[in-house]
Design a protein around this nucleic acid. Sequence first.
DNA 1: TTAATTACGGATATAAAATATCCGCATATA
DNA 2: TATATGCGGATATTTTATATCCGTAATTAA
Lengths: 161, 161
Amino acid sequence: MQLRNHVEWALHCCAILAGLPEGKFLPAKVLAEFHGVPKEYLAKALQALSLAGLVEGTLGPHGGYRLKRAPEKITFLDVVEAVEGKASTFVCTEIRGNNPCREPGYCDTKPCGIARVMWDADRAWREKLASVRMSDLLVNLLQDVPADQLAKNAEWLAERS
Amino acid sequence: MQLRNHVEWALHCCAILAGLPEGKFLPAKVLAEFHGVPKEYLAKALQALSLAGLVEGTLGPHGGYRLKRAPEKITFLDVVEAVEGKASTFVCTEIRGNNPCREPGYCDTKPCGIARVMWDADRAWREKLASVRMSDLLVNLLQDVPADQLAKNAEWLAERS
DNA sequence: TTAATTACGGATATAAAATATCCGCATATA
DNA sequence: TATATGCGGATATTTTATATCCGTAATTAA
């Protein structure tokens, strides 16, 4: 089981958008070039973010994307679910119902015990993702990346936003 | 992102094997019929469990599978990883390295901040899975399923083990 | 000794999902 | 009016999941 590369791309794009000057838009084309990924396909991930209300797009020259909410209001889980959906990673197909020696009118009162455990684990995963915001990510970036490199990035992006 | 149905099947099979009388073997064919799933394909999941050392198979008439360790020594994580592998659900492709305005000799000192968060969440998921044992699952089953139904299952399985 | 049963590994086939590209449309800006 | 952009739909390609089949070796019972 592996997450789609859209998840990685979308998170990196949100990080860039979160660091952009207030109100500026950045086109998908620029985000694709900055991250070295195919523009046409990245566009699909960005559309998913737009559909989920995390970013908003605007048309025409000087158009592009910007965050629709403040970086403190967007979590990793928001982004992951925008791309992968909200459905649990574990799907219970109720195979216990196939049991050939079940009583005729037998009816389950509770969800399958195996599914309950798997769903708990899925929940733990999502809770962890929900505990980190885009603003936290920016803080980490400021610590990890040298100031002059950040400045170069900002300049490069400013020329294209 | 969705787990393979092998995960569900393998967990149900381990639950059955955990409830089997000490030392008895149960053939893949019987496990498949009990769960209403295709025998040939389930066999692949059981072989994965065998390869991971969770169950052992024996050949010939009255052959089949049994747990290789006590139910208290097998966790959900063991089973999930036997089927899905141990690799993280998030794969970092290091797209930050594609940044077109990077300094020539720039070298990352730490893993990408996005990957760190995603790996933390993956770890939380696995820790939750590691916290539940097959013996815990049996306890839940005893609570959820009426005694007479359990007896019927046991009888049906005993005839075929 | 023989026949039946079983796990195991490999090969193959089919269906679904991920990855990717392309195009036309409506819209916004200069 | 020309250009740049997001958006949605259609299509193509590659990879993974799902599933089946077969040969082999091992084990048991007749």
